[in-house]
Write a protein that binds this DNA or RNA. Structure first.
Lengths: 194, 194
DNA sequence: CATCGCTGTGTACGGTCGTACACATGCCCG
DNA sequence: CGGGCATGTGTACGACCGTACACAGCGATG
């Protein structure tokens, strides 16, 4: 019985194939790392023939670059959305704490891909534009609520705390994270006081 | 001591070969990343025959693990030495700022290896002990001068700021870094004051 | 000094990779 | 309705990888 007349021989002309391949690539990166990402693995994950890889992309570097670009864009959007309802300084602290503890849109898997991107960008200047844009955007979000210097501090803090949390085997105290963030956010440029 | 009669045909029995291979491996990781680290490349860098690789190490994983262990140990020693003369809280701020800006014993290359380690540890639990030990030691150093929570904050801050600095194409303001660190270090557990 | 055994090495094998490219396929136009 | 052509794919090639392993060379031993 043929429910679908077109089925076996070849899936001709599906226009979203490129995107599906890129999505599959992100998944493969998350699971196997950049080092373990191969044409064949991505092709299998996207359920497309191997030949599609070189047809749609000039090479593996091209595919990786596009995958990272999509991932970074998605992370930036998630990041911005996470701070959409923030009003007060206390909200910032809360939002950042949630971010670090994975209660925003991003999970450990997403962060792993981000770190793959960082490391890849360290060696491939072509990826710097992606990381550069991503960092500028994340900092811009924070600068809506705090001064530029504090924004850089909090941004760096997020990066480091998340990395340590991801690598840590034991649990990480949320209250402590909250306290740390609060200290970083508190003072503006003018002297302490409280 | 004689002037070394052994030279041409084969370098038999040099007892530090293992160590030299490990050192070469660290260099290769720094230059090509874990993904680009191969037996042949390391062998060439250490100027030993390919056969020595499987003779001295059970496999590539073993070699990488040992290389990372040595690197982490060296980083920890550097870290501790860098804080040896620290006395006051202001000294801490100064020391951390220097650390972030590469004026301690560690340069960008060393940090790159560290990030390779982090990412590798993310996927290989066997490397977790190395990262775990390294993080415990670095935090212990800071805890000599500040409370545990602050230590975790500063530790994370260092990680994030260095990563951002390494990835940043433009210059990073040292004064700003100093300011950020100072904020993170200032208050102990008791209420603000200044 | 002859022999044995162990330390160390050259080489080869099976496997996987990226990539190119000849060819099948279905659409469109005349 | 039939042929030309752009789109898409199966397959094969050369390169490089990790690893095993038969063997070469030296030092110790009797």
């Amino acid at each position: 019985m043929t429910a679908e007349p077109l089925d076996r021989p070849a899936r001709r002309h599906d226009p979203e194939r490129r995107q599906r391949i890129v999505e599959a690539a992100i998944g493969v990166i998350a699971e196997h790392g950049v080092a373990g990402t191969t044409h064949r693995l991505v092709a299998a994950a996207a359920d497309v023939p191997l030949g599609s890889m070189t047809y749609h992309f000039t090479g593996l570097d091209d595919l990786l670059a596009q995958a990272f670009a999509v991932h970074a864009e998605r992370m930036a959007v998630t990041y911005e959305a996470h701070f959409a309802d923030v009003r007060s300084r206390d909200d910032v602290v809360e939002a950042v704490t949630d971010l670090v503890h994975g209660h925003a849109g991003a999970d450990d898997r997403d962060w792993a891909v981000s770190y793959e991107l960082y490391l890849a960008a360290l060696r491939d200047p072509a990826l710097r534009t992606v990381t550069e844009t991503w960092m500028r955007r994340s900092r811009s979000v924070l600068e809506q609520f705090v001064d530029a210097t504090t924004a850089r501090g909090v941004d760096g803090l997020i990066e480091g705390l998340v990395m340590h949390k991801v690598l840590s085997t034991g649990p990480v105290s949320r209250a402590e994270t909250h306290e740390i963030i609060a200290r970083a956010v508190r003072p503006t440029t003018e002297g302490a006081a409280q």
